[in-house]
């Protein structure tokens, strides 16, 4: 699988750069997506997935510790876009997270982030890496 582009970004453990990183994801999707329609859908999806995964790393894995950092690696190949979000915290059990409740009488304010990521990406995995953890998310690029 030939790598067409790889991008490494390190940000402080703060939410202020979410918009900037989201825009980078959008622009990569516009560059590497297929049809114009797919490109815009993919652009929005990558913006969402990057935002959700980085917030997850900042607030949950890194417990909002200002001394920590989040490292993001985006790789585009002929077949897929892979996003790796590295944290340096204690981590969490991805499989223990239940899907959010959809009943209007029992709505929760939080708990939709991982559900959204899983809905938009083809493969999602969270594991130990580099002394911390990595949330690995992959999406196939449709070729016609």
């Amino acid at each position: 699988m030939k790598t067409r582009m790889a991008l490494d970004i390190t940000i402080p453990n703060q939410t202020r750069y979410l918009g900037l990183i989201g825009k980078i994801g959008e622009n990569m999707a516009r560059e590497f997506g297929d049809s114009a329609c797919d490109r815009e859908t993919l652009a929005n999806q990558l913006n969402i997935v990057l935002t959700e995964s980085i917030v997850n790393a900042i607030k949950h894995a890194n417990a909002t510790d200002p001394a920590k950092e989040v490292h993001v690696r985006i790789t585009v190949s002929d077949r897929e876009i892979a996003i790796m979000v590295y944290d340096s915290g204690c981590g969490f059990d991805l499989n223990s997270l239940a899907s959010p409740c959809f009943d209007a009488d029992a709505l929760e304010e939080k708990g939709r982030g991982i559900f959204i990521i899983r809905s938009l990406m083809d493969h999602v995995e969270y594991r130990k890496a580099n002394g911390g953890n990595v949330l690995e998310m992959r999406k196939k690029l449709v070729r016609r």
Binding site: G22, N47, T51, L107, E108, E109, K110, R112, I116
Partner: peptide, 16 residues
């Protein structure tokens, strides 16, 4: 133009 789960959560909080 863009909303994430935190934005949705705030609106859910308002709904409740």
């Amino acid at each position: 133009r863009f909303i994430d789960s935190s934005g949705l959560g705030v609106l859910v909080s308002g709904f409740k």
